[in-house]
Write a protein that binds this DNA or RNA. Sequence first.
DNA 1: CGCTATGTTGATCCATATCAATAAGTGTGG
DNA 2: CCACACTTATTGATATGGATCAACATAGCG
Lengths: 232, 232
Amino acid sequence: MPDFIHEDIRKLHLFDAMAQEHFQTLMRGAFVQTFPPQIDLITEGDPSDFLHVLVSGSVDLFSAWNGRETSMATVRPVSTFILAATIREQPYLMSARTLEKSRIALIPSVEVRAIFDTDSDFARAIVTELALCYRSVIKAQKDLKLRTSSERLANYLLRAQARAGGQPEFELGFEKRRLASVLGMTPEHLSRAFKGLHPHGVAATGTRVRIADRTSLERFAQPNPLIDDPKA
Amino acid sequence: MPDFIHEDIRKLHLFDAMAQEHFQTLMRGAFVQTFPPQIDLITEGDPSDFLHVLVSGSVDLFSAWNGRETSMATVRPVSTFILAATIREQPYLMSARTLEKSRIALIPSVEVRAIFDTDSDFARAIVTELALCYRSVIKAQKDLKLRTSSERLANYLLRAQARAGGQPEFELGFEKRRLASVLGMTPEHLSRAFKGLHPHGVAATGTRVRIADRTSLERFAQPNPLIDDPKA
DNA sequence: CGCTATGTTGATCCATATCAATAAGTGTGG
DNA sequence: CCACACTTATTGATATGGATCAACATAGCG
């Protein structure tokens, strides 16, 4: 594995406190792969053989039952996914596929568990990471259960704008149909939802979005730190 | 705090590996309280001062936004709640209220964090507990996003029957209106959903439910371990 | 330059919520 | 032990958010 990726991973909160020796053991068994968009990485129900670390790109976690399918979360770099399955030595609860071209490091779960048992700094880091993941799914669930799809879109746009540095105009990272799936709605409905936000100063042309009047959009979206703040 | 509760808590996976000395420190600062049904225990947004351990009864975790409210999860004994908030030293993301009369142990979060830092067996136990909590919210989210309310009810009843020992007839723990909230629907809708399950051998009188033909109900409910098995 | 994927618009359908009325329990005080 | 009040459950009518289906418009891309 190239050194600069080593570095990126080492910088992750999950790995930055552990003994160098243990980190190297982890990295020896690990490997990095680059995947094109729309590639299935894991399937729910499979044994959790690898802890995944998304180095670049983005990944959709989704789930299916009885012929229906739903997106559960989007993973952005640099972060891990399916840590809980790795720790509990249980099958994955979600499937994963790349949204864009993505570089992913795969670390054998056995190694993670072995070092977790001996390196207590690593164990503590895992706690923090898991607590963070836990809180982020709770926030996702609140977003989903308490808001209509237009409200979700509005809040999503506010967050995306903040991520993009706060300029009035910015790029969505992906196509609208992807965004629809991320927000848990159909592309048709998203199209209408965008129209519905027009009166609040939102204009979308292709993957480019312009928020003319943030205050007005906020009045409609009612963002709340206990749902929208990734650090809360 | 009475000794037998001490015992119950010590038996919890979260506390059974830690040093006796540390456990006693935790218990010294802790206290147990009994609450009547429908009492608010915590409010989302409040600082996470206490780790809660439900000793008996049951607790509803819920959340509100913009005048709407939704139930997020039900806690059953003996287990902890709001562990993630305690660990991250962040405000609660959910509110909690008792469903039935409940006995709850409150352990100061500062103590939990202090011992988490020094007792690595405890830190490891927290990881396992958190991973379990994480997976259970994922399962709840899948249940919610992938199933209609009748399907959710059907699967709930199958699980409740299993919990009750598998007899064809058993008690729901609470009123139907509570069940409705737990399943994320209105009481009216639940009433109709029960009627809809009649053809599959479900009869409900008051809080008593009878499943005449489990096979038929299963054929409709399509239970799946990756959603319905609490151990997965 | 046309083909294929993406996006928009309109019509309709479905699950579930809401509102309203009634029925059935449940508990309390006389 | 019954009558009354209050809560909970059921049933019906209607509203709404969102999905689905179908047609059409656009835009990348080989």
